[in-house]
Simulated scan of single mutants.
Amino acid sequence: MSEIMHVQGLIFRHSSKKKWLKKPEVFELGPIELSVKRGETIAIIGENRSGKSLLAKMLVGAVAADEGVIHLSNERYNAARKKTTKSYNRSNDIRMIFQHSSEAMNPGIPAGMILDEPLRLNTKMTENERKAAIEDTLVKVGLLREHYYFYRHMLSDGQQQRIALARAVILQPKILVADEPFAALDPSIRSQSVNLILKLQEEMGLAFIFISHNLGIVRHIADKVIVMDNGQIVESGKTETIFRWPQHEMTKKLILAYQSLVPQQTLN
């Protein structure tokens, strides 16, 4: 697999306002070094407030870094505040899937218009070309062409998730980033969503970076696992290596908690 993204020295510093008789809280993430290969699935795990969601937002450009460089598809992006010469979050090669798909859909706009926006803003397609691309993408994510005209209230939770996925892939990205994309779904819909993403990965050669507390899903679909604690990557490696031979104390804690919930015979 060829490398499509490389992150160097990504740092974020945040200081909360000083409160009465209390020192200001300081949170620092990084420096982060990581690489992503074509078709690779990377899971980022860690406890709450470990910095994993912040890292995901920094990777897609939704949050600016204080320092760091991101190489994506042979282009170099300076991710630091006030120094960005090219707007990183406008890159079509990396897109984000929202956790709560219903909140990402305007209830007054049909699905077709929601999917039309990224094409209208980022391509030179004609209206007919955009409509054809939208319908093809709807079919690709397991919906019907007729769903172009459906509003949010007409769609089930699973269908809304598929619209969110369609919006993420419609610009033919190379990387999808998702923060807990399956957490809000019931088990049956969650399984369908996982299988759909695996199918799209194979068809489109997508890399998938996702944050999850569900280590069962992580073990099932991830090629590589990154463990974060207090803003740092404390361990990373192939999924089975991490699950069988965790080295860092935080990794051991997370794996032990997972194993306590799973019948022991399924771990071998």
Rank of each mutant, 00 (worst) to 15 (best):
E33K: 12
L34Q: 10
S35P: 05
E40S: 05
A43G: 10
N48M: 11
R49V: 05
L55M: 13
K57P: 00
L59Y: 05
L59I: 11
V60D: 04
A62G: 08
A65N: 04
G68W: 07
V69S: 05
H71W: 08
L72K: 01
N74F: 14
E75D: 15
R76Y: 07
R76A: 12
N78V: 07
N78P: 14
T84E: 14
T85R: 15
Y88W: 07
R95I: 07
R95W: 03
H100K: 09
H100S: 10
H100E: 13
S102G: 06
M105Q: 14
N106F: 06
A111F: 01
A111H: 01
G112H: 01
M113K: 13
I114V: 11
I114T: 13
L115K: 03
P118I: 09
L119V: 01
R120V: 00
R120H: 10
T123F: 01
K124I: 10
K124W: 15
M125N: 13
K131Q: 13
A133Q: 13
A133F: 06
E135S: 03
E135I: 15
D136R: 12
T137Y: 00
K140F: 11
E146G: 11
Y148I: 13
M154Q: 15
S156T: 06
S156I: 03
D157E: 11
Q159R: 00
R162I: 01
R167Q: 11
